[in-house]
Simulated scan of single mutants.
Amino acid sequence: MTSPPVPAAIAEVLVQHSATVRTRLLQVRDLIFVVAAETEGVGPLTEALKWGEPAYLTEASKSGTTIRLGIVKSAPAHCAVFFNCKTTLVDTFRVHFGSEFAFESNRALLIPATGDLPAEPLAHCLRAALTYHQRRKRQPVAWVDMPTRQ
């Protein structure tokens, strides 16, 4: 699966970041589209700017919650993957992947801008966000498909 071309408005935002951060954010963007394509019930994504940051929404299926990409001032050498702070997603990611990522409060997981992309654990987190509403309707305890890291 190849992700769609980067829309001009998104490219304008990304070019404001350093080359290292921009490259990592584009890698995460690609992974979002791959995970969406591989996950039943997600359907096509809407890519837009929310709060001046690239955002990925499941508008067609309404299966998940918005994922945004950016940075946080407290961790300039990291890229931030933001999730709705009114969900339990980040708290759950902390339990399952606390050794894989750093976190910003209950709103983002932080990924180093350099080094290997932690693709497998990040894909689990993205899938959980993209199916958040779908899974809440089906089963209250929706994290059984997420591996626990010790």
Rank of each mutant, 00 (worst) to 15 (best):
A8T: 11
I10S: 08
I10R: 02
E12W: 00
V13C: 06
L14P: 08
Q16D: 12
Q16V: 07
T20Y: 00
Q27I: 11
V28F: 07
R29D: 12
R29W: 13
R29G: 12
R29P: 13
L31F: 08
L31D: 11
L31M: 11
L31E: 14
V35D: 01
V35C: 03
A37W: 02
T39A: 12
E40G: 13
G41R: 05
L45A: 08
T46P: 01
E47S: 05
L49Q: 04
K50C: 04
E53D: 09
P54N: 05
Y56A: 04
L57Y: 14
L57M: 15
T58W: 05
E59G: 00
S63N: 12
S63E: 07
I67Y: 00
L69K: 02
G70W: 09
V72H: 04
V72Q: 02
S74K: 14
A75V: 10
P76S: 06
P76V: 12
P76R: 04
H78C: 14
A80Q: 10
A80R: 12
F83Q: 03
C85S: 15
K86E: 12
T88H: 02
T88D: 08
L89G: 01
L89Y: 00
D91L: 00
D91K: 01
T92E: 14
R94P: 08
V95C: 10
V95Q: 14
F103N: 09
F103M: 08
E104S: 15
L110G: 05
I111K: 02
A119F: 01
P121W: 11
